[in-house]
Design a protein around this nucleic acid. Sequence first.
DNA 1: CTGAAAGCGCTTACAG
DNA 2: CTGAAAGCGCTTACAG
Lengths: 371, 371
Amino acid sequence: MCSMGRKRPNEDDGKRRATMTRVAEELGVSAMTVSNAYNRPERLSAALRERIFETARRLEYPGPNPLGQSLRSGRVGALGVIYDNLLSYAFEDQAAVSFLRGVSAAAEAEGLGLTLVPGSPRGERDATAIGRTLVDGFVVYSVADGDPVLEAALERGLPAVTVDQPRVEGVSFVGIDDEAAARAAAEHLIELGHRRYGVVSFGLSPDWRVGIADEERQRSASYRVSRSRLEGFAAALAAGGVSWSEVPVYECPSSSKALGRDAAEVVLSRVPRPTAVLATSDELAQGVMEAARERGLSVPNDLSVVGFDDVPEAAIATPPLTTVRQDHVEKGALAGRLLVARLREKETEDTYLLPTGLVVRGSTGPPPRTP
Amino acid sequence: MCSMGRKRPNEDDGKRRATMTRVAEELGVSAMTVSNAYNRPERLSAALRERIFETARRLEYPGPNPLGQSLRSGRVGALGVIYDNLLSYAFEDQAAVSFLRGVSAAAEAEGLGLTLVPGSPRGERDATAIGRTLVDGFVVYSVADGDPVLEAALERGLPAVTVDQPRVEGVSFVGIDDEAAARAAAEHLIELGHRRYGVVSFGLSPDWRVGIADEERQRSASYRVSRSRLEGFAAALAAGGVSWSEVPVYECPSSSKALGRDAAEVVLSRVPRPTAVLATSDELAQGVMEAARERGLSVPNDLSVVGFDDVPEAAIATPPLTTVRQDHVEKGALAGRLLVARLREKETEDTYLLPTGLVVRGSTGPPPRTP
DNA sequence: CTGAAAGCGCTTACAG
DNA sequence: CTGAAAGCGCTTACAG
C-alpha cells in the first residue's frame, strides 16, 4: 500500500541514501562547501548555496546527518532520564509525570530533547541499554542504592544528577528532606490523638517483597526514600509515646491504588484495628481509602489516612486527601537545569533540597471515640 | 564542592577521555580486539579480555562510545516523538500522557528508547531541532496539516507514522473515526431532546485564534481532528433538525480546564442559553462544568455536557462526565509498533482506525422543562 | 585467536 | 569565496 514501506534504504536499486560528499561530487565542489551551505550560509554566495540545495533536492539528500555532526562535535543534544522501572510505568505515576514535565521544560529551554532510557522491571535489572543511549548526560530518578543501572550510568562518565535517590558521592542530588516531611505527617496524627497506627509503604528494596516488613528489613532498605520516610514516621510516633515496633509496616512492590488496597486489607484486619494509616504515596493512600470504603469504614470518622506527594488527584479525592506536598515539576526542572549546567561545565552544589509542607484536608480527623 | 563538576573533559591536565584506540595502544593490541572484548567475547581469550578491561578501568575508558557505534551501524536505538506544542504541555495533557505510555511500552519491548523532540509553542513553529535529533524514526503526534515541523520530519527520510493528524500520503496513520465518534456524541444529546447547543473546541488552526469560529473558519481548519469532530457534530444536529449555523462554536487555543471555563462563559451567556454543550476534549468539558457551577447551573439538570477522550479523571469528575471513549494507550502502542515494523522494513497499512464508544455518565440528561 | 584497512558522515582549523 | 586534509570513535568484512 504505502510507498515508504517499500523503500529499503540499503537496497533501493543500489541508490543508497545520498550523502554530503555525493552532493559535493555531483556539483564539483568540496564537501565542506556543502556543509557551509547548511550551517554557515554567510561563507557562501547565495547563488552557489541555491545550486547546492537544488542538487540536494534532486538527489534526495535530507541534509547533514546528525550522527556525523554529533560524532564530530561530541554533543548529542538530549538529556537522558533513567527511571527505576519500566518506562511505561512512569507515565502511570502522576508524581513521575509531573517530574518529567519539569525536566522536559528545562531541556526544551535549551533546545535539548529528552530521551527516556528503556527500563527494566523492578527485581530484574538490565543495564545494557544505558551504555548504548545517545545523550549528553543523565538524570537518574528514584533508583535504589547500588542498583546496577546506576553503576552503568555513572560509568558512562557523562554529567549526571540523581533525584530522590540514591545519593552518590560527587554527583549532584535533588530531593526533599524525606525524614522531616514524614515526621510532620505523623506528628499531625499524633496531635489528633491517634494511638494505633498502620503504615503502607512502597518498596524498601528492589527485590519485590510484599507484606509486613520487620525492623531489620526497614533499616536495611536500599531505597533511601522509603528508609527515610519510615524513620520520620518512627521518630514522630516514638516522640508521641507510640511504640514503633508494634506498628505494622506493609511493603508494596510499587506505588499504585490497587496495591494500596491490598495492603490496607491486611493492615485494617489487625485487632485492635488501627485508627490511622500513613502511606508513602498518594496512590497508595487512595487505595487505602478504597479498602476502608469497602469495609464500611468512614474516612476520617473511623479511619484517618495521610498520603504523600499531593498529586493533582489528591485534592479531588473523596474525601480530599491530607498529604505532604512537594513540587514535582520544580524538582524535575531543577534537576534538568543542573544537568544543563554540568554540560556547560559549570559548578553545581552537591545537594538541593526542595521545601515540603503538610496539606491538611478531609481524610484526617480525631480517632473514633468507641474503638 | 563536587569533583565531577571540575573535570573538564577536554582540558583535564591534557588527559582527554580515553578512547578504544588508546586502550588498544596501551596494551599493544589492535582496536578491533578491544572492540571484540566488549561486543564479541567469544572471539577472545578470557585472559586477554580481562587484561583489556583492567586497562580500560585504569585509563577510565567508559566502554565503546555509542556515537561511534551508531555512525557505523546507522542505528540509533530510539524512537522520536514529535508533539505539536511545547513538550512540557504534553505532560499536562492526560490524553497525551496515556499516548506516550503506549509508545514507550512499544519502544521498550524492542529495547529502544523514547526521544521527545523539543517543541515550540503553537503559533511559533520552530523545526530546527528536528533535523538534529538522533532517532531511527518519528511518531508525529497531533500536528496540523502543512505544519513546517511535519515537513522537517518527513524530509529526514526516516520511517514515520502520524497519529490523529495529519494524514500524509504514503505515511501510515493511526487514529479514530473522529467524525463518527463526534456524531455519536451529538446524537445522544439529540435523543435526549436538546434543541439549543453550544460547542467548545480546541484549536482549529495553529494561529492561536480565540473566540467564536464561523463556518468558513470551521471548514478551513488545518487541524484535521477539530475539523472532523465539528463535521460530526454538525451532521448529527442537522439530522436532528437543529440548524448548525446557529450553534456557537467557541475555539480555544489549546485544551485545558481553564480555557474551557473561559469558553463556557461566552457560550452560556447566549440568550436563550444552550441546554447542551459539546466539547472536543474532557479537559475542556471539565472547564465547562466548572463555569456552569459558578453560574449556579446544575449539570445535568440545567445543562448537559459531553466530553471527548475518557481520560481517567472523567469518571471521577462531579458529576461523572459523559464522553467519547478512545484508548490512548493502545493508540500509542500501535503507533510505536508500526514504527518499529517500518524500521525492520516490514510493510504496514496506510490507515489504522481504533474503535471508539460513547460512555454515558451523569453529566447528560434531558433538557430542563422551563427554559 | 588476532590484525591492517576501510569507511560510517560530518566539520574544524588551516591555507590560499 | 572555496578547498584538501585530518579526525571525531567505532566495527565489518577480509586475511592470516
